[in-house]
Design a binder for these strands. Structure first.
Length: 498
RNA sequence: GCUCCUGUCGUCUAGCCUGGCCUAGGACACCGCCCUUUCAAGGCGGCGACACGGGUUCAAAUCCCGUCGGGAGCGCCA
């Protein structure tokens, strides 16, 4: 069997969309599991929409996701150039050969005329197909008109009858009526290649063995196979992936939420989590385990088991997968990931002392459980860095306004005033004392305690929270952390004011 | 409109090719219980689907036909 060579060929017109990212990922997985090569090619022939910044961004996004390529515009290779804008002479030369071999012809129809034809065909309920007006032009006449400066495109001669059949690795055998395939434009009048043509020339010259792409290309594939034949190249194998949709079953777009790899990166998702989730969109492992690393995915992935129907992008499941990946991180990794968002929020200094790092590790590890992505961290850390009884929610206030609540807070404030060092054990002693004094116990005791110290109704277990709070209060953070005694006193004053 | 693709729990899917093992399996979400010094996390359990209609067959989610639904394509865009 020939060497597996696959490619991802985006046009640099914006951020990398997760749908395209999935296509790239399936290609990459297929290449890696077959010890083949993965090639990045930039399709920048649409000058109006392509921009170099987008190409750079694309490369960053792909790299962040964890994909690497063996050949590409940034690293070269034996089959370059890998930017279509640099391959113009190649396209021109093959199209000339096709003209000479009478497999292609010049067409002088104006865009306006073609548009009219399409519209009237559609009005009649027919599929618009190029009429073939210029098919019969003699080479001499064409040549004269070109020399006279007339604008022309080059079109491929395609058969008018029969079907074009091919086998798709995902969908099985497919059949298209040739009658409905018009002669595709190869070279536009401005000399730039049209998509279908550039793709075929590039894929053939780059030795691509498998073309794995979205199902929106299904009909292009028929045209492209015709082109392979005309150019006397062997067509590669094809696999068409289903589309990625939003929950309302329309193509995934910004309306549905984050759609670009870049956004997920910024929101603090782990690349390994997005990678894992994307692999599961339209494919599932044969065993039941779904949380998989990149390496596991390389081994388990099976192109022939890819689903044929469209897949809805499920943010909930992505969050779950993300949590599973986050759980596997070490305390140090967690702290490192937490640093940036917390620092941006103004909670942490630019330069962290060893003690601060060690505190951050413990605190972040304790808070990680409720988190799906790292951008949620600052909110979680509010339990340390922000304490304001005045701002507590109504639910929290209600806890304090109960008979027990009021008594517990008063007693706590009093007890803590006399206590220099607070830790969880000390607090346990204190809470036992308060229990005796007030007669409140269980939830009636502990819930007010929690609210008094955090101004929140939920959060960390108190046995983890209290030592962290006391330690943190001694460290010099840009936003100082208030210790237990301060908090209890403030809460006490607050409820007395109600 | 035409052409192509597609249709299993709300969502991602297993099963379909090679009919019986399917009382249709798993995961997310949801709900409940347990654990617990609230919540969350974790553990356990529950709800929940073969789009519809015909056929073939002793037997159909699985094969055939039709209907309906969803998506895509119909450019000198990619």
């Amino acid at each position: 069997m020939t060497k597996v060579r696959v490619r991802f060929a985006p046009s640099p017109t914006g951020y990398l969309h997760v749908g395209n990212a999935r296509t790239a990922l399936f290609n990459w997985l297929f290449a890696r599991q077959n010890k083949g090569e993965f090639i990045l090619r930039v399709e920048d022939t649409d000058v109006e929409r392509s921009e170099k910044e987008y190409e750079d961004q694309l490369i960053k996004d792909l790299q962040w996701l964890g994909l690497d390529w063996d050949e590409g515009p940034d690293k070269g290779g034996d089959h370059g150039p890998y930017r279509q804008s640099l391959r113009m002479d190649i396209y021109a030369s093959y199209s000339q050969t096709l003209i000479e071999n009478k497999k292609a012809y010049y067409c002088f129809c104006s865009p306006e005329q073609l548009k009219r034809e399409r519209e009237s065909a559609r009005a009649e309920g027919k599929t618009p197909v190029y009429s073939g007006t210029c098919r019969g032009l003699s080479p001499e006449e064409s040549k004269q008109r070109i020399e006279a400066g007339e604008e022309a495109v080059i079109r491929l001669f395609t058969p008018d009858r029969g079907t074009l059949d091919f086998h798709d690795l995902v969908r099985g055998s497919l059949s298209f009526q040739l009658e409905l395939i018009g002669d595709p434009v190869l070279l536009r009048s401005n000399g730039l290649p049209a998509y279908n043509y550039a793709v075929v020339v590039d894929d053939a010259l780059m030795g691509i063995s498998h073309v794995i792409r979205g199902e929106d290309h299904l009909i292009n594939t028929a045209k492209q196979i015709l082109l392979y034949k005309a150019l006397e190249f062997d067509p590669p194998l094809f696999a068409h992936l289903s589309m990625v949709m939003g929950e309302d079953n329309t193509r995934l777009s910004k309306r549905h939420g984050a759609t670009s790899v870049h956004q997920f990166n910024q929101e603090g998702f782990l690349a390994s989590a997005l990678f894992n989730y994307l692999a599961l969109l339209g494919w599932s492992p044969s065993e039941e385990k779904e949380v998989l690393s990149k390496n596991e995915l390389i081994h388990k992935f099976d192109l022939s088991k890819v689903s044929r129907s469209a897949a809805v992008f499920d943010y909930d499941k992505l969050h779950w997968i993300s949590r599973q990946h986050i759980k596997k991180l070490s305390a140090r990794e967690i702290a490192e990931k937490a640093f940036e968002p917390l620092q941006e929020e103004g909670f942490l200094p630019d330069e962290m002392s060893d003690k601060q790092w060690s505190w951050l590790q413990k605190a972040a590890t304790a808070l990680i459980k409720g988190i799906s992505c790292f951008s949620e961290f600052p909110e979680q850390f509010l339990i340390f860095f922000s304490f304001s009884p005045k701002k507590m929610t109504e639910d929290a206030r209600k806890v304090l306004e109960t008979e027990c609540g009021t008594k517990v807070v008063q007693a706590l404030s009093k007890e803590l005033k006399q206590t220099l060092r607070v830790n969880f054990d000390k607090l346990s002693v204190i809470s036992g004392e308060i229990k005796k004094q007030t007669g409140c116990k269980g939830k009636d005791l502990f819930h007010p305690l929690r609210v008094a110290l955090t101004a929140q109704t939920s959060g960390l277990d108190l046995d983890k929270f209290i030592p962290l709070l006391e330690q943190g209060a001694k460290l010099d953070f840009p936003v100082p952390i208030k210790n237990c005694a301060q908090r209890a006193a403030e809460t006490d004053r607050f409820i007395q004011g109600i």
